[in-house]
């Protein structure tokens, strides 16, 4: 409600940090202007980071990993045992991707990933987290009542017989989900399979696309 006074002062040791969007925008601009002026970083380097995450690093990389796992049992075994080694085989890795763990959905188990501490998210395979993932409300509710959150917020109605497991990502371990391979995908190539894999299916709040819909 009220946005009159700064928050997080104790954590950031900073009472002057602005609150309104316009003020924050100016603050960001001032920081960048000074950092560039002092030669601590170039404007170009900043832009490159942003465009990499906007265009090159995203869920399509995770989709490649999932598609390979669906097609190659040896790769899948490695992925479940050592996700980083498996991703490295596909040239995928990097920042915020240390210690990734893949959890497999089966006909009996559904996995969902949250982060109750901050927003730990495997950037190299999924890109940056969606906005809702970063909401504290999502994180706490998903832990308390995952089945209900999945049904009400994401329209994912899980069979009562399925065991729902919620994995809490931390700075040490970042989880992502290996969704179940959809039916009717026999004989599809890895590229075709990758097109079915959504970001939400790798966080465990959705299913892969139905192959009939993408034809």
């Amino acid at each position: 409600m009220s946005v009159e006074r700064p928050v997080g002062g104790q954590a950031s040791g900073d009472e002057t940090f602005p609150v309104s969007d316009a003020e924050i925008a100016v603050r960001a601009k001032a920081l960048e202007s000074l950092l560039v002026e002092k030669g601590l970083v170039s404007a170009d380097a900043i832009d490159k980071v942003v465009s990499a995450y906007e265009t090159d690093i995203g869920p399509m990389l995770g989709a490649k990993v999932v598609a390979r796992a669906w097609s190659d049992p040896d790769f899948k075994a490695l992925l479940l045992e050592d996700a980083n080694a498996a991703c490295e085989q596909l040239g995928i890795g990097g920042m915020q991707g240390e210690h990734m763990v893949v959890v497999e959905n089966t006909d009996q188990i559904h996995n969902t990933v949250v982060c109750t501490l901050c927003s730990c998210y495997p950037w190299p395979v999924l890109g940056l987290p969606p906005n809702w993932y970063k909401y504290p409300q999502y994180r706490s509710r998903a832990v308390m009542e995952p089945r209900k959150v999945l049904r009400e917020e994401f329209g994912l109605d899980l069979d009562e017989s399925k065991d729902v497991r919620v994995w809490d990502s931390s700075s040490e371990i970042r989880y992502f989900v290996l969704p179940e391979r959809p039916e009717g995908t026999e004989g599809m190539s890895e590229e075709e399979l990758a097109d079915l894999v959504t970001r939400d299916s790798m966080i465990g709040v959705g299913k892969p696309r139905d192959p009939q819909e993408t034809r």
């Binding site: 942003v50 890109g127 906005n131």
Partner: peptide, 18 residues
């Protein structure tokens, strides 16, 4: 399209990049 836009305002991407 596999989700939503990552940044809502220019300053957010600026903060991220810096």
């Amino acid at each position: 399209k596999n989700g939503e836009l990552v940044f809502e305002t220019p300053w957010e991407s600026q903060a991220f990049g810096m």
